[in-house]
């Protein structure tokens, strides 16, 4: 939306994951009933969004410059956040005990699925719907879309660009941190998380199309299915397949599969 390719989005995701572990461990230690840990995860993710405005303030310094410099500044953030996490949580993987199976398992079509996975899937759908609603049905959403379309024009019409950018960026940070917090019961938080996630996010965004919400959603489904499919059939090509698709999309439809279909 902001026409900024943020390499640091993976760092927000990792930060959300680490904080999620700490928050839940702390809350459980203080006698929180186990099934409520999901709420703690979401809350810790949302709370982390406070880092959004200061980071956005830093990026503002290069809004008017070449995109290459924006890319580099976010790369600088990646390096810094990586060491912040190393400093706070150490280099060993951090894991959340057995919260994963608190909600039990469910037998679906012959295989057992942890209920938590279904919760995450539902949460993903909810967020997608919520974002869609926000962008299409609210005043804020209209302003954001107008600004993305033509920033000079919307500024001329009285939109406070700084506030819009700060809010959009913070919203993006919040989605990243909550997303990171939500995966943590199923996996461990590791130092390399940030830089690994960002290339997947990059693949998703490219496939779906920059600046398209629907594209991002479909893109993530494509990447997820592709990954799972490749792991099941020919594990060597797992990542390879993703990048082949990314390159294919960039070459054939550089604006992404959903160019023009943006809400």
């Amino acid at each position: 939306m902001q026409r900024i390719l943020n390499l640091a989005c993976g760092s927000f995701y990792a930060l959300g994951a680490y904080t999620g572990v700490s928050a839940v461990t702390w809350a459980l230690g203080h006698g929180l009933p186990a099934p409520l840990f999901l709420l703690v995860l979401v809350a810790s993710g949302l709370a982390l969004a406070v880092i959004g405005p200061p980071v956005e303030r830093l990026l503002r310094a290069v809004y008017d410059r070449d995109e290459s410099f924006q890319l580099l500044l976010t790369f600088a953030l990646v390096l810094m956040f990586e060491d912040v996490m190393r400093f706070v949580w150490g280099t060993a993987p951090v894991q959340l005990g057995n919260a994963y199976l608190v909600y039990g398992r469910l037998a679906v079509a012959g295989s057992t699925v942890p209920v938590y996975n279904l919760v995450v899937i539902a949460a993903g759908g909810l967020v997608a719907l919520g974002m869609g609603g926000l962008l299409t049905h609210t005043r804020f959403g209209r302003i954001v879309r107008a600004t993305a379309e033509n920033r000079e024009m919307s500024a001329a019409l009285g939109v406070d660009l700084r506030r819009v950018y700060a809010r959009v960026f913070t919203l993006g940070v919040a989605l990243g941190t909550v997303g990171g917090a939500l995966v943590i019961p199923a996996t461990a938080a590791v130092n390399e998380m940030a830089i690994d996630v960002v290339v997947e996010a990059f693949a998703v965004v490219v496939i779906g199309g920059l600046g398209s919400m629907r594209g991002a959603f479909v893109g993530s489904l494509i990447v997820g299915v592709l990954k799972a499919g490749a792991i099941a059939t020919w594990p060597e090509v797992e990542m390879l397949a993703i990048y082949v698709v990314v390159i294919g999309v960039l070459v054939l439809r550089p604006a992404g599969l959903f160019a023009g279909a943006a809400p």
Binding site: L58, A61, V62, F69, L72, L73, F75, A76, L77, V78, L79, M80, F81, E82, D83, V84, R86, F87
Partner: peptide, 17 residues
């Protein structure tokens, strides 16, 4: 320091800005 990435990230940010 073991946290050289942080220093370098900050340095890069300063150079870029």
């Amino acid at each position: 320091t073991a946290y050289w990435r942080f220093v370098f990230g900050a340095l890069l940010a300063i150079v870029v800005v």
